[in-house]
Amino acid sequence: GRKSAFLKKAGFINYVIKHFFEDGRSLDVCANRSLATGEFLHYQTVCPRTLYNYVDQGLMTIKNYDLPEKLKRNTKLHHVRQNKKKLGRSIEERPKEIEQRSEFGHWECDLVLGHKTKDDQVLLTLSERMSREFLIIRIPDKTSASVMQAFQMLQKQYSEHWNDIFKTITTNNGSEFADLANLEQVSKTLIYYAHPYTSCDTCDKGTVERYNGLIRRFIPKGDCINNYSLQQIIDIETWCNSL
């Protein structure tokens, strides 16, 4: 049978383990960065899939419970529920070219909740599909008014460049985004709403959902976002953009 490369590539395996635990990098990031920085050549490494197989086989000190994204991954088929509320333009109307991630300006957005109480703040997250640029904006609550106020702030910040930077925004059907389509009345930005109850699916807005999962490494579910300083939020955003 085919021989395992595990022992022959011990140097690369140790590199992955070191950066996984010390820098919080995923196995994919470790594998790709090792090649991008020139620290290893292709023949000295294994692909991310093989790394995950090593974890499953118990060959590495990294265990499956150290991989929160893997444990929460759902392999069941998603079914789009019919006759649900429609806040605006469906994602099915979104141009297919956006799926190719070849043009800058197409964003996904979502909310990250903390303690889920009325007096706790909320994080508005946005991710650009091509560049993977990630933004975190702290807002007072999860109301549609607070969400719109944050976008109005962004629109003022980017000024005349807004239409070039925010060409489209894809979000879910939550009531907090009910007024987001109003941006179309004051700009050229087009708003698309994901399929109800399948917004975390990769084909809808999986990019921002992935970053939301990374935020949970620093702000676990149930923690009050009020307890985290603005600098800490900025540090999390910087860390996400450095991957």
Rank of each mutant, 00 (worst) to 15 (best):
R2S: 07
A5Q: 12
A5M: 09
K8T: 00
G11W: 01
I13Y: 03
N14A: 13
Y15I: 09
L27N: 13
A31M: 05
N32E: 13
T37N: 14
L41F: 06
Y43V: 01
P48N: 13
R49D: 15
T50L: 06
D56P: 02
L59K: 15
L59D: 02
M60D: 08
D66L: 07
K70Q: 15
K72W: 06
K76D: 04
K76H: 06
H78S: 06
H78N: 06
K85S: 02
K86T: 12
S90A: 05
I91N: 09
I91C: 05
I91D: 06
P95D: 06
Q100F: 12
R101A: 11
E103A: 10
F104C: 11
H106F: 08
E108Q: 10
C109V: 09
L113R: 13
D119W: 04
D120M: 08
V122E: 07
L123P: 08
L123V: 11
M130C: 11
M130N: 13
I137Q: 12
T143S: 07
M148S: 01
A150F: 03
Q152E: 05
Q152M: 04
E160L: 10
H161K: 15
K167R: 15
K167G: 10
T168I: 05
T171G: 04
T171S: 11
N172G: 05
F177E: 01
F177C: 00
A178N: 00
K188C: 02
K188Q: 14
T189G: 03
A194C: 12
A194V: 00
H195R: 05
C200P: 03
D201M: 07
D204K: 04
K205F: 03
G206F: 01
T207W: 09
V208M: 07
V208D: 06
V208Q: 06
E209C: 05
E209Y: 04
R210C: 11
Y211R: 10
R217A: 12
I219M: 12
K221Y: 13
K221H: 14
C224V: 02
C224Q: 14
C224E: 14
N226E: 09
N227Q: 14
Y228S: 09
S229Q: 04
Q231L: 09
I233E: 10
I234V: 05
L243Q: 14
